[in-house]
Structure formats: structure tokens, C-alpha cells
Computed example of a mutant assay.
Amino acid sequence: MARCTAPVRGHRSAAAAADCPACGSRYGGYSSYRGYGGGYRSASAHSYLSYGSSSSRSGSSGGSGGRRTTKPRWSGAGSAVWYTPEQVQSLTPVRENVENLAASQPDLRDVFLCHAWDDRQGSAKELHDLLEARGVRVWFSEKDLGLGVPMMRAIDKGLVNSRVGIVLVTPAMLHRLPAEGIADKELSALLRRERLVPVVHGTTYEELEQVSLLLASRAGLSTAEESMAEVAAKIAELVVTKS
């Protein structure tokens, strides 16, 4: 009988769980567990993949044993950012929405950054700064909530006027969501649209699953697999379009 490779603390990511001989069948494979609603099959994503040479694969960023061997169609010719096939598959629907909105509503912000209040001066600000350094227009509460402005109305406008929602999933976020506060309201609005990318940081998809099955079912990125800077680079490529 197959035995779990992480019996004590659990797997750090959905990818690790899918690779486990004991848990892999439970998740039905990496792409089906973290796929966008489970409705995108690997065959449909092949038209978006651009495979590099064997030497390029061995030099892919992120240090995940050569898994990042792919570039999506929206990567620039000189891009040094590499992806897993699963990431390209799951991010493709988001990119298609971005392109449609860029054509019809060019003045929208690129992303709305949803985060726990406790992370506003830490990991949320780090991600915000990395994104803005790459030219991403970010709606961020610490910058966009002015004094005397009704908070919920400002957040509502930020959600409406952004193309993509980035949800920073941290231990603080997992603690806040059950309380049904502001972060929960932001998440509820974002979950209604197919323009949501979770970024799991300092926690796991398994722990997220205990708090929000809907959010855990959405494909995303994880700092357990790559650095925050690499995550920001992928988000920037995903949401920024050429004018």
C-alpha cells in the first residue's frame, strides 16, 4: 500500500500532494485540483505553450527540479520568466479576460490586491511594491484609501475598476476569513468573476481548503514553490498588455 510522503505536517502545495503516491489519486492530479473550476483540460492549453530547448529547461528559474519549462503566448520574446504547464493552463482564461477588458475598458487598474489587514505593512506591501516596480497598476488599500473616504465604498469602486483580483492567502488571511470582515467581502466579490488569482504565502492549499473550498479550487501561485519576486514577475506578465 502506498504511503504518504508527508505524514506529519502535510504537503506544502497541491503539486506536492498530487505527486505523492498515496495522496495523488485523492486530488486527481495537480491540474484538476488547482484548475480553474476544474473545467480546463490539459489538451486545450497546448496551443498556448511554447517549449524551450533542453538547455533552456535546465536553466529555468525557481529551482523546482526543471518543472518550469514553458512560456505562455503572452510572455515577451526576451522574457526570463518560466512557467509550469499547469500554470499556463490555469492562467490562460485569466489572460483572455485581461485582453478583452484591455480592449473595451483600457482605463481599468491592472489588479486589485486583496489581503488581510495584518499583512498591510508586510507581505502585502512587498507584493504591491514588486508589482508596481514592474509597471503594474495596483489598487492597494494602504495607498488608495484616503482619509475621510468611506472604506467599503472605496473598496467597491476599486473592485469594479480593476481587471484582475489578486488574493494574498496568508495565515492572517485564513484567520480573518471566518470572521466575515472586509477581506471576506472582497473575496466574495472576486469569486463571482473568472479573474481571480490566489497567491499562497506562508501557508498551503490544504490549509486554505479548510477555510474556503471555493478559493482553494482556483488555480494560483505559491511562494513555497518560487520567490515573491518570481510570483510578481508572473503576475506582471499576466496582467500588463501592450498599448
Rank of each mutant, 00 (worst) to 15 (best):
G135L: 05
D118Y: 09
L113I: 01
Q121M: 08
N100A: 11
W117T: 05
L108W: 12
G135P: 10
F140T: 00
E142P: 04
L113F: 01
R109T: 01
G135Y: 12
L113T: 00
L145I: 14
V138M: 06
S104K: 10
D119T: 01
V136Q: 02
S104M: 05
D129S: 11
L127N: 02
S123Q: 14
K143T: 12
G122T: 07
A103W: 04
V138N: 00
G122A: 06
L101A: 12
L127E: 05
L131M: 08
V98M: 04
S141W: 04
L108Q: 13
H128I: 09
D110M: 04
D118W: 03
L113P: 04
E99A: 14
P106Q: 07
G135D: 12
E126M: 06
S104I: 09
H115E: 06
R134M: 07
V136H: 02
D107G: 12
S141L: 06
L101I: 10
A116D: 05
E126R: 07
G122D: 10
D118H: 12
L145E: 11
L127R: 02
A103Q: 12
Q105E: 14
Q121H: 10
P106M: 11
V98A: 08
D110T: 00
L101K: 11
A102G: 15
A102N: 11
F112A: 00
V111C: 09
D107R: 15
P106T: 11
N100K: 14
D144T: 00
L101N: 14
A103L: 09
D110Y: 03
D118G: 03
D107A: 15
D119F: 05
S104P: 11
E99T: 11
A133Y: 04
K143D: 07
D119H: 05
Q121E: 10
E126P: 03
L108K: 08
